[in-house]
Amino acid sequence: MMRRAVLQAAATTAMTASVFLAACGGNKPPVAKPLPPPPSPPETTASSRPPLPPEPVPEPVVPPEPLRDDAIRSGSIDDINRNSPLKPVFFDYDSADLSPAAKTALDENAGVLKKYGTWVLTIEGHCDERGTPEYNLALGERRAVAARTYLVALGVAADRLRTVSYGKEFPFDPGKDEAAWAKNRRAHFVITAAK
């Protein structure tokens, strides 16, 4: 039921966007043809080469798109994530290596995951703003995978742990100093299913 409602909302958004685009007006392409030279200058030397017709510029169409499949969460999972017992793991600049502090945090997280054996997680990899956005997608993934690999080695089932990199797209602290950057270089744990 809820899922249908969300999809309908998405479709409505898309339709609104389409209507808006349509209202922006027909962006019809002009058609070109060569003219004869003008009559007044007696010795006109006009280019009579026929041009290609201008490129058509049609209106783009925005089709409806479904929202993210896991958009519907029970309130209880959101509550758990809001006060999550799973600690984020922080990294050095341009590094996906696990520091002693990072391993301590992961040891504790492994204990929590053994206690709550039904939890399924997404481990998000994040980067600070200094690296470039494209490379940070790869770096964030390495951070998430490093945390996942360590947890699996501690006995957490691999199929409970998904990874996703957000690069530097979602900083936790928008600041422009080392204190902010340090918070943003992290693997962040999100519970996506719990029974």
Partner: peptide
């Protein structure tokens, strides 16, 4: 200097987005 025309073109189409005419003329 000569009063002669070096480029003569006619374009026709919709009036909805006239910037397209300028862009097409510039490319030509």
């Amino acid at each position: 200097r000569s009063g002669q025309s070096a480029f003569n073109m006619e374009y026709s189409g919709s009036i909805a987005n006239v910037r397209v005419y300028a862009h097409t003329i510039a490319d030509d």
